[in-house]
Design a protein around this nucleic acid. Structure first.
Lengths: 142, 142
DNA sequence: AGAAATTTGTCCGTATGTATC
DNA sequence: AGATACATACGGACAAATTTC
């Protein structure tokens, strides 16, 4: 199948699906994801496309990859101390964020939002903005 | 030619070379780099490998790529933004923040903004929202 | 200890989609 | 409309690190 990518690219859809599986526990934190070859088969995508999806998740700090070993769903997002819920979404850079991150206004950013709770009450909302356009350093991409 | 890459991978060597050309002015800041196809020819590499090299430079904020246009050597590397690494301001709670923090829409929140840098380049912006009444520092991350 | 199997990393070549000039 | 250039996707091959037997 040569290459249609209407709307959302395949690798982003795959990244979304894998992120979801991690967040809802289908892939437990700390566990190895299936190998790239298996994911490629499951999603009917090439290994390269799967690797692009994993690169997205690496940049979002959702997973980590080790050569010869596999890709791991990161156990604790940062501090397990207070239960935190994390959510990702894509946002356009406003002028301030664009200036700080040295990107064009309107370019795509990843917003990671987590809430920190104490005794069930949310006491803080933390939003982290990362550039979404570039894949990670050791990422394969084409 | 299938793939010899002793020592440093090809794409990193290409990234190093391009970075060097930008830093020593061979490629002026603000100018377009040669198209990927030309770079691929010059370095005797596939376009995919060149794109990997450019991805490295993008993450380093040395260049920016615009779809259909080209890849640009970034004019200003940083721009003194690091002055105010941390900044506080008051903002009104929008519906989402109000819901999460269990306050009324429009009530005053403290927004603390921090930037995290790597090699002088800002790689992430972290904003923490607290209710204006509680000012104690809490969980966050890079 | 060593060999084989597994899995990620790098690189190539090609084809097609999409945005800009 | 056409040319140019970046983005996405495929498939194959070999290298390197880790695990397993």
């Amino acid at each position: 199948m040569p290459t249609p990518h209407y709307g959302q690219p395949r690798y982003r859809a795959i990244a979304d699906e894998l992120r979801e599986r991690i967040e809802n526990g289908a892939i437990p934190r700390g566990a190895l994801l299936p190998p790239e070859s298996v994911l490629a088969a499951e999603f009917r995508a090439s290994r390269g496309t799967v690797r692009q999806a994993l690169a997205v998740l690496r940049q979002e700090q959702v997973v980590a990859t080790e050569h010869g070993r596999g890709t791991i769903a990161k156990p604790y997002q940062i501090e397990q101390a207070s239960e935190s819920e994390t959510r990702h979404r894509y946002v356009a850079a406003d002028t301030e964020l664009a200036t700080l991150l040295a990107v064009e206004v309107g370019s795509l950013l990843v917003e990671r939002q987590r809430v920190s709770q104490e005794n069930g009450a949310i006491v803080a909302v933390v939003r982290t903005y990362l550039t979404a356009s570039s894949s990670s350093v050791n990422a394969d991409e084409r």
